[in-house]
């Protein structure tokens, strides 16, 4: 269901839990689907012994993909016109991620009704792992 201009206001928020106790297997699943087989995400031996990280970690794009689910659940299917993020902290196996979208503006552009959103995804410690913005078409 798309958002309706008459039913939303600036400052409204929408939250979802994206994942609980992220498993290495899901990171591998994302590697397979996306085609990004960087060993930093899938190869614990390489990542700890060669690259010097404490463990493998999630692709930023996995966090962006999971956060995208929150956005489309809120604004409706096929409604996004823009979606952009910064990856502010790494996401590790075992992390639990929660995300919140906030309505920043409701506006008209070339006869279309649009909503601008900010979105932030945090881990179980409250650390921001992804910070972004999105724009979506809405109904009257």
């Amino acid at each position: 269901m798309a958002l309706k201009q008459s039913e939303i206001k600036v400052g409204d928020t929408y939250s979802e839990r994206l994942v609980e106790d992220l498993k290495r297997t899901q990171i591998v699943q994302y590697a397979g689907a996306s085609g990004d087989y960087n060993p930093l995400h899938t190869d614990e031996v390489f990542t700890t012994e060669v690259a010097g990280y404490p463990s493998v970690f999630a692709h930023g794009m996995l966090t962006m993909g999971m956060t995208g689910k929150l956005l489309t659940n809120y604004v409706g299917d096929g409604r996004l016109t823009k979606y952009g993020v910064r990856f502010t902290s790494q996401v590790w196996p075992g992390d639990t991620l929660d995300s919140t979208a906030t309505i920043e503006a409701i506006r008209d552009e070339d006869g279309e009704q649009l909503v601008d959103l900010s979105v932030q995804t945090v881990n179980q410690e409250g650390r921001v792992v992804l910070s972004g913005t999105a724009t979506a078409r809405i109904d009257d």
Partner: peptide, 25 residues
């Protein structure tokens, strides 16, 4: 330069990470 991940590029070793991604549909 693989010892500490200080290499530059070449294989996405520790040196190469994704900082931002933006899509316009």
């Amino acid at each position: 330069s693989s010892g500490s991940g200080s290499g530059s590029g070449g294989g996405g070793i520790a040196a190469g990470l994704h900082a931002e991604q933006h899509f316009e549909y």
